[in-house]
């Protein structure tokens, strides 16, 4: 039993190591790419939709609706980033029911990387939406003295994003491992089913929180504009 799947090494050649986190991340990436490629090969807009195209359209529509409701903006520019985060985390959490698979999200390295992506995406979307000066001015709101607190808030929410996903997924695998030693018959299955639920909810929460952070960086400007119109 280990709380860090980075230590499970599959392949080592000199300084070059493939641990279980990297391997299963690549596996999930491969599955997603292959699946999307197979489905989008022959898209149709007329006649009968294929079953898989229907699935993808339902998912994309659902993500678009959620983004529209959270950010009150058109989802276009945010869909690629937020949708990718959601689908990647969801698939890597759901696959946890496959025996021998360790979710890459139960390693702090993966979740930290995802959280850093959000940390970098927030200023990028903010600057693209309202310009460098307006974005930087946001850190001085409401007064100049709030600058350190705004910066600390930015860092601590990134840390919280990483540790929340890591803790939830790691606790799932640990609890199943502990239960296997105590009551190996039925209860691990129940906990694993619960793990599927928490996995999906955590994927949803990660994507929604990323969207909330991005929206808050690009929304302030609009509100000021609205106040000016009134």
């Amino acid at each position: 039993m280990t709380i860090n799947p980075d230590e499970i090494v599959f392949f080592q050649w000199g300084w070059f190591t493939i641990n279980s986190t990297i391997f299963f991340t690549w596996l999930v990436m491969f599955l997603l790419t292959l699946g999307s490629w197979l489905v989008t090969r022959k898209l149709t807009s007329e006649g009968e939709l294929s079953r898989w195209q229907n699935l993808l359209e339902v998912m994309i529509n659902g993500i678009n609706d959620q983004i529209r409701e959270v950010s009150r903006q058109e989802p276009g520019p945010y869909l690629p980033f937020v949708g990718t985060l959601f689908i990647f985390i969801a698939i890597s959490n759901i696959l946890a029911i496959v025996p021998g698979y360790t979710p890459p999200t139960s390693s702090l390295s993966t979740t930290a990387a995802l959280a850093i992506c959000v940390f970098i995406a927030v200023p990028i979307f903010g600057i693209a939406h309202q310009g460098v000066m307006n974005y930087l001015r946001q850190y001085l709101q409401p007064t100049f003295f709030m600058l350190p607190f705004n910066l600390i808030g930015e860092l601590s929410r990134t840390l919280a994003l990483a540790v929340r996903l890591y803790g939830n997924m790691m606790s799932g695998t640990i609890i199943v491992a502990i239960l296997l030693t105590i009551t190996p018959l039925i209860f691990p299955v129940v906990m694993q089913a619960l793990g599927l639920l928490t996995g999906l909810i955590q994927a949803y929460i990660f994507a929604i929180l990323a969207m909330v952070y991005i929206a808050s960086a690009s929304m302030a400007h609009q509100e000021i504009e609205k106040k000016g119109e009134n």
Partner: peptide, 24 residues
């Protein structure tokens, strides 16, 4: 759901500290 996740993260921090104390 978002609020519950925020609240739960404090419990998750404690859990992570516990796991570090026991396993690492």
């Amino acid at each position: 759901f978002v609020g519950l996740a925020m609240i739960e993260s404090t419990a998750i921090y404690c859990f992570v500290v516990t796991m570090i104390l026991i396993f690492a």
